[in-house]
């Protein structure tokens, strides 16, 4: 058994891969995971008894994305950008192998799937999500200054269309499974206990092991042609909206838009290379490292009260008194009152 997943083949020849990254509350993409997953895909491709595979998780949620905690140190004093891009382009080959191996892969998304976790499912030929109200799907990389670097900027627009994909990725929105279904990100919903049988059934019913973009004559849903009015208007407005929202201070949103714009005009393998280069550009930009540190790592540890002296209990504010309620004090009083605290000011 590997450290990050189990694979069992049932009597119908369907391989079920259960992701279970050890010592982590949530599945995240680690170096071990990539190795293990590669072995699974190779075995499924080789083994003639296996007719298809279901990808799911042994944990309560499906998978979050990259392991930001382990990423942060590597973002400081990054090495050779070109070599890094080469490694990422190399890693895309695994997803492409899965997409083109001729055997159907189904993602049985049993809970939350974010970032790299959702991107893996986009490389599957079919996606069924558990209809859970407490689960979310999304590509939130932009929130930490990055882009969906696991093929997300290439596959998502090719699945749901340019505009919807741009909106989701530049805002890092989380979606409930119902909404993900409505947008076409997943093909089907199922009650949690019917998820696995449904996924297997799709394979047994002859689910096709081909991605839309590998079919001849593929077109991006909704169309995408930089010589047509719709595309021209959409991108010129999107570019301005990104500038408005970032004040040119955050490099990730426009890198996402460019990756989509440039990558969707070329075959997907070339698009993945374009994405990798924009991704490495962001990795090398101090903004992403700073955002991961402040907004993710430090925020999480602050939420866990890391800096609180031992033996001092957590204090709950019931009433807030503000002395010197000028512009700022009045504002604090207002938001506190709106948050439900009894608030007084003088």
């Amino acid at each position: 058994m590997s450290k990050t997943m189990n694979m069992n083949v049932d009597q119908d020849g369907i391989a079920v891969i259960e992701i279970n990254v050890q010592d982590r509350p949530m599945n995240v993409i680690t170096a071990d995971f990539a190795d293990d997953f590669k072995n699974c895909v190779e075995e499924i491709t080789k083994d003639e008894k296996i007719i298809g595979a279901v990808l799911t998780s042994a944990k309560n949620d499906f998978m979050a994305g990259a392991d930001l905690k382990s990423m942060l140190p590597t973002l400081i004093g990054l090495g050779d950008a070109s070599a890094m891009a080469e490694r990422i382009i190399e890693s895309h080959k695994l997803n492409r192998a899965m997409e083109t191996c001729g055997k159907p892969f189904v993602a049985a998304i049993n809970g939350t799937a974010l970032g790299g976790g959702l991107e893996i499912t986009l490389s599957c030929h079919y996606r069924i999500a558990a209809d859970r109200n407490d689960a979310v799907l999304g590509l939130p990389e932009v929130m930490v200054g990055l882009l969906p670097g696991g093929g997300g900027t290439q596959r998502l627009p090719r699945i749901i269309g340019i505009q919807a994909a741009l909106e989701l990725m530049t805002q890092g929105k989380h979606l409930k499974p119902q909404k993900a279904l409505a947008m076409g990100i997943v093909n089907e919903l199922a009650p949690p206990d019917e998820l696995l049988p449904k996924a297997k059934q799709w394979i047994l019913d002859g689910g096709k092991a081909i991605q839309p973009w590998d079919k001849k004559g593929f077109k991006v849903p909704g169309g995408f042609d930089p010589n047509t009015k719709g595309t021209i208007q959409m991108f010129s407005v999107v570019n301005a909206m990104v500038a408005k929202n970032t004040n040119h201070n955050y490099p990730a949103p426009i890198a996402i838009v460019s990756s989509v714009y440039e990558g969707c005009q070329v075959p997907i393998d070339t698009g993945l290379k374009i994405e990798a280069k924009y991704f490495v550009g962001l990795l090398c930009d101090p903004v992403s490292g700073n955002m991961i540190r402040s907004l993710f790592n430090n925020k999480q540890s602050a939420d866990k009260l890391r800096a609180r002296p031992k033996g001092v209990d957590k204090h709950t504010v019931k009433t807030l008194g503000m002395l010197g309620a000028g512009m700022m004090g009045a504002g604090i009083t207002l938001v506190s009152a709106q948050a439900g605290y009894e608030s007084l000011f003088a």
């Binding site: 991108f235 010129s236 500038a243």
Partner: peptide
């Protein structure tokens, strides 16, 4: 006019 693109307004790297 509105059917003619070009990098100036449309290409995100150029326009932004």
């Amino acid at each position: 006019m509105d059917t003619v693109g070009g990098a100036l307004a449309v290409d995100p790297q150029v326009a932004y």
